[in-house]
Amino acid sequence: MIDMQNILKKIDKLPPFPAVYRKAMQLLQKPDTSVDALIQVIQYDQAITANVLRMCNSAYYGLQRKIHSLRDGLVVLGNNQLMEIVSGCTVVDFYQKKGHGYGLERGDLWKSAISSALISQIICKLIGVAETPTIFTATLLHDLGKMVLNDFVWEENEKIVQLVEEGGYSFEEAEQNVLGMDHAEVGAMIAEQWSFPEDIIRAIRLHHSPEKAPEDDVITPIVYLSDIATIMLGIGVGSDGLSYRGKEKVMKRFGLKEKDLERVMVDFYEAYNNVQRILSMDE
């Protein structure tokens, strides 16, 4: 079994997605760049968001309340520190890795994070829940654990896939069986280590088992649905495929019908094209 505690200790900073990093650096080099313009670009990057939350919620700042979003974080940090965070990020990791254990390229995880965050906004509108920055952040960061496992899990991946194919396990159940914990738990442990707010930690931890969240928790089931819709679209899906459980109770709780999920996918397509325009990416 791999030594997860030891791996987690090594997780210090997460590398941002190169397209976001390049665009952010371009903006930072112009003297007249506004913070809003910068936020527009970096809000879609789970690594930069995680790094900002980590810094703001650290003991160094000693804040009374936790910081839940990039925008709140920037009030605490100020422009210069934000620039330090972004320019201090490294993208080297993207190119040094020979491949990835979960069959995912870093771009896949980035795409999946931003796609589910966009979908969470669409779902909020659909079910009449206020679109809070916390929901956006929790959805953006829900697969932090996958970012880590994708780099550290190699031969174990075969065993996980085998359990899914032959044993009728869902992917996260197979992860628990082989690794002793699933990617949701790994993500929550990182979020804890970095002193993220409780509601975000819980949504990360329970994003495949929303039924375990307290009844008044609206964030976790929204993160779950946003993730499931993203997976169904084949975005950011590696060797796990679609091997996750569809939980109709969550749909029923929000009064959603099967057609609503289709509606979400149609609206997502437009939203995603807009983000690609902002980052002027190819593909």
């Binding site: 499931i228 679609l242 996750y244 569809g246 099967e258």
Partner: peptide, 14 residues
């Protein structure tokens, strides 16, 4: 046309 596991009509787009 892939599917989630034990999916109900809510998730059977595939």
């Amino acid at each position: 046309g892939s599917q989630l596991m034990d999916q109900s009509e809510f998730f059977n787009i595939g």
